[in-house]
Design a protein around this nucleic acid. Sequence first.
DNA 1: TTGACATATTGATTGACATCAATATAATGA
DNA 2: TCATTATATTGATGTCAATCAATATGTCAA
Lengths: 117, 117
Amino acid sequence: MIDINIMKIMEIDTLLFAKVIADDTRQEIMKCLCCVWLSVNDVVEKLEGKVNQPTVSHHLKKLEEARLVFVREEGRQRFYTLNEEYLTVCCGALISKFAPSYSAQVVPLDSIPTSDA
Amino acid sequence: MIDINIMKIMEIDTLLFAKVIADDTRQEIMKCLCCVWLSVNDVVEKLEGKVNQPTVSHHLKKLEEARLVFVREEGRQRFYTLNEEYLTVCCGALISKFAPSYSAQVVPLDSIPTSDA
DNA sequence: TTGACATATTGATTGACATCAATATAATGA
DNA sequence: TCATTATATTGATGTCAATCAATATGTCAA
């Protein structure tokens, strides 16, 4: 059980995770999507003209590919929300990879999501 | 006491942190510097021709600016090691910012380093 | 002081990617 | 069916950053 989870956290692509969160606009979008479901246009409006719709779609796609958001389709709209749990697991993977001394006290081994999205 | 630490974790620039770790070569260097002190040339050799010395110096500078490595000068050599604690704190800052629901169980509030490097 | 070594800096090149305008696709209502 | 709305895709452009060769800076030994 624990072994499986340790294996899973090892498989996490810390480079992909880092690259996806290493963008200002993307971090702003993540902040918007924390704890709430928003449509693409909701996000565009929340960013108040900083970027326009295709750019937001582009970033949401990146976040989706990195499993950092959940998507729910509803008619012609797509609602997104942040996958806080997976984000936490990725941070745990970073610590487990680069700060093994702090791994034990930090990584929540029993909250790792399964692969079937 | 806890308040001060919470304040500190809030001040952490999660965008800078993400950008610095969002590079393959830099992650390899970080892996090399985990738990050991290495000189610049030691790192160059460990990377076995992947990049050359100026590139390694460049990356080490970035890591130093982001407080992710400690430096010790010794004669004409400079030894580096990964700052595992600060890396852990940065991960905690990410979680506290983007996954507040998981913040409590993950962030090690009492292991935040002081500003005087 | 001079030569060898260790690291940092500079300038040029290149590739990756964020952004936008324009357009395509898809769903809904009249 | 047609117009409208919501989102995605495409192609072009510009910017940033990784990399390297060459060189500078700083340290040690003889």
